[in-house]
């Protein structure tokens, strides 16, 4: 069987987990074995939700110490489940928790792990394609080991439900945990007092780079973002200049976004930036340089100075809204 580590919020699987399940089902199909899942703190409906993606059995880890996230204890639970079930492979989403838990499992079992995979040909060894450089480069690699451990790159796989889902059977799994496994755990969640839409969830993102010129000049972009109910982002260059906080940074070492529309203004489109916004459905670039990489990557482009275009656009949107 293939075991998948599914993250969920109150029973609703995270997008990255559903993407992972789509690849996991493919791997299970290649081996002709069932797909099973492990979840922590089961919410209502999680079995039905993952059943729709082909999971036949859900192992719900039940232990008082780990209702909240505890990386080492979660990993030890998965580790014990792997010992019991002896799956061909364990797949996790390429999320922070997915990478962390699976890296612990790999380390505990002395196995290699392949991060951010896109495609797998299963066999005695797995031939797989995975992301390097945040996805700017792909690596074709061979993964060996008694149990293959891999995470699945987020925002890359189109999810697909199975034709006639029957829902999954749930089964409780009680791990044996030592105090040491429980030494690191989530203590509390601090709510941010920032207003506005988080970058990762925004439908539209307006973003600025070195071409914006100063922190003050971001006001024009802020205004456009307000008018479009958009979040504001920035390139690494603008963060390094001290114009924006790192929380706004889109790129390999910042936020990876997947909005309907991304509007980069005065951003050249370096590799490390494009990795952060390649999930965008549409890109509308505003840039003075027709040769800039961002123009090439964009669906729409205006080759002009953002300091002239953005205020004029703001005015037009205001007029349209007043008229409506």
């Amino acid at each position: 069987m293939i075991l998948s580590f599914v993250e969920h919020e109150d029973g609703k699987p995270e997008d990255s987990s559903v993407e992972m399940l789509t690849l996991a089902r493919d791997v299970a199909g290649q081996h002709d074995v069932p797909l099973e899942a492990v979840v922590f703190s089961a919410g209502e409906g999680v079995a039905e939700a993952v059943g729709a993606f082909g999971v036949e059995t859900v192992h719900v880890v039940d232990h008082d110490g780990i209702r909240d996230y505890a990386p080492e204890a979660w990993a030890e639970s998965v580790n014990q489940l792997v010992s019991e079930l002896e799956p061909e492979a364990v797949l996790a989403p390429g999320s922070e928790r997915g990478h962390e838990v699976l890296a612990h499992v790999a380390s505990k079992r002395g196995l290699p792990m392949a991060a951010n995979c896109l495609d797998v040909t299963a066999g005695e060894a797995y031939e797989l394609t995975r992301q390097r450089w945040g996805g700017t480069l792909l690596e074709n690699a061979r993964l060996t080991g008694e149990t293959k451990l891999l995470t699945v790159a987020p925002n890359e796989i189109s999810t697909e439900q199975i034709a006639d889902p029957n829902g999954a059977t749930t089964r409780e799994f009680q791990p044996t945990l030592a105090d040491e496994d429980l030494r690191v755990g989530l203590v509390e969640i601090e709510e941010s007092d920032e207003e506005g839409i988080p970058l990762g969830e925004a439908r539209i993102v307006v973003s600025g780079g070195r071409g914006v010129g100063s922190a003050e000049e971001f006001d024009k972009l802020e205004e456009l973002a307000d008018l479009l109910d958009a979040a504001i982002g920035s390139s690494r260059a603008a963060v390094n200049e001290g114009w924006r906080s790192h929380d706004d940074q889109v790129g390999q070492t910042g936020a990876k976004i997947s909005p309907t529309l991304y509007i980069p203004c005065g951003i050249s489109g370096a590799v490390q930036h494009m990795v952060g916004c390649k999930g965008a459905e549409n890109i509308l670039a505003i840039n003075t340089d027709p040769e800039a990489a961002i123009v090439d990557h964009a669906d729409y482009a205006v080759i002009a100075d953002l300091h002239e275009v953005v205020p004029a656009l703001n005015e037009a949107i205001r007029e349209q809204k007043d008229g409506a």
Binding site: T136, L137, R142
Partner: peptide, 11 residues
Amino acid sequence: RGLEKLSLQSP
């Protein structure tokens, strides 16, 4: 090496 690079490619 448990994960052996075969080749690199641009997406």
